[in-house]
């Protein structure tokens, strides 16, 4: 269970840092444009697309290490 919680916390930190750490450090300026877009707007367009990939990775890891999946009713599909 500790591994599942550890991976989860790590993911929360990664998503948080991507949004508020990286944006503030590298994209908080009015130019030059990135792919024609204002830097901040560019970054906040990229991260919502990247986040499902990160959480999808967590999902796959979680299936392997989280014992909750063995609980009754946990894996009902539909």
């Amino acid at each position: 269970m500790k591994r599942a919680v550890g991976y989860w916390l790590l993911t929360v930190i990664i998503v948080f840092v991507l949004y508020v750490g990286v944006s503030v450090l590298f994209f908080n300026h009015a130019g030059p444009a990135i792919l024609g877009m204002p830097p901040m707007l560019f970054w906040f367009t990229v991260v919502p697309v990247v986040t499902p990939l990160i959480l999808g990775g967590l999902y796959l890891i979680d299936r392997r290490v989280n014992p909750q999946w063995d609980e009754e009713g946990y894996d009902v599909r539909g």
């Binding site: 989860w8 993911t11 929360v12 998503v15 948080f16 949004y19 508020v20 944006s23 906040f44 991260v47 919502p48 986040t51 990160i54 959480l55 967590l58 999902y59 979680d62």
Partner: peptide
């Protein structure tokens, strides 16, 4: 940002 951080927490 707030909602995506929240989804990660909610996972």
């Amino acid at each position: 940002a707030l909602n995506d951080v929240a989804y990660a927490i909610g996972f």
